[in-house]
Amino acid sequence: MTTRHRQSADAPSDEAADPSPIGQAILSLIGKLPASREPRSRQPAQDARRKANGAAAKAALAAGALALPPGVVGWLTILPEMMGVWKIQKQLVADIAAIYGKQATLTPEQVVYCLFQHTAAQGVRDLVARVGERALVRKASPLLIRNIARRIGAKLAQRAAGKGMARWVPVIGAVGMGAYAYVDTAQVAATAIDLFEGVIEVEAVEVDVR
């Protein structure tokens, strides 16, 4: 009697395929955690909201400016626009973690969760498990992070198509992209505040993301 060997998380599979350009951008984004100069706050919720408002305004300005070029040229600015907004949001997550006194335990998994939980929940569903006010952050291998980036990239490709259409009406499109970036950044902040104001436990095992 023969048995089939279960494919391990690090074995080659369809999920190990190279991510899309958006997925590759996500990988480069989370390769290094940003530092923060924010001190631990005695009123973290208020200071985190203040930081979030500033970051949202900055993201709106960046997205709106990059959405101004019209037509075909505008298509070339879609990925730089997304990357610019994500970098602002990544710094925001680090700042909120510092405000809550949790920057020292910040991990790439937490950053990915905060950035994309509201737009690609299925892609990050296995990174953080919530039990009441406690959050269990599961460590993921580089391959699993790559697979998650591929999933998020596939999901966000739909949004990129909408951004491309907006390039044909540059002024209106720029206003719309700026407004979207503002709301998107506010949602990232809300996720980060919800995560860092509770108890966080980091698990030292890999998760098989399929």
Rank of each mutant, 00 (worst) to 15 (best):
R130G: 03
A57S: 13
L61C: 06
A63P: 08
L76P: 02
S20G: 06
E197G: 05
C114I: 03
A9Q: 13
C114H: 04
Q91V: 01
M82F: 06
I145C: 00
V205P: 02
H118T: 06
L61M: 14
S28F: 10
K90H: 09
V73K: 13
E133S: 13
K163E: 11
L156C: 08
A56D: 07
V131R: 10
R40L: 09
A35N: 12
G84H: 04
S41V: 00
W168L: 14
I78K: 08
Q7A: 08
L27D: 05
F196P: 14
Q46H: 10
L115F: 01
R50N: 07
S20M: 04
T105Q: 13
A157V: 02
D47G: 03
A149F: 11
S141N: 09
R125P: 02
G153H: 01
A157F: 02
L61P: 01
L136K: 13
K90E: 11
A154R: 15
L156G: 01
A204Y: 07
T3A: 14
R37Y: 09
A48V: 00
R125E: 08
L61I: 15
G54I: 06
N53E: 13
V85D: 01
P19H: 07
A120N: 03
T185A: 01
L92P: 05
L29W: 09
I148K: 06
I78P: 13
T107G: 07
S41T: 02
V188Y: 00
H118M: 01
A25S: 15
L66A: 12
T3H: 13
A120K: 02
V137Q: 00
R6Y: 10
I88S: 00
T77H: 11
A60K: 07
A161F: 09
R151M: 05
D194P: 00
A129Q: 13
N53C: 00
V137E: 03
R159T: 10
S13L: 04
Q89M: 01
T107D: 07
A121H: 11
A35Q: 15
I26S: 00
A166G: 05
G101K: 09
R138P: 00
A65W: 06
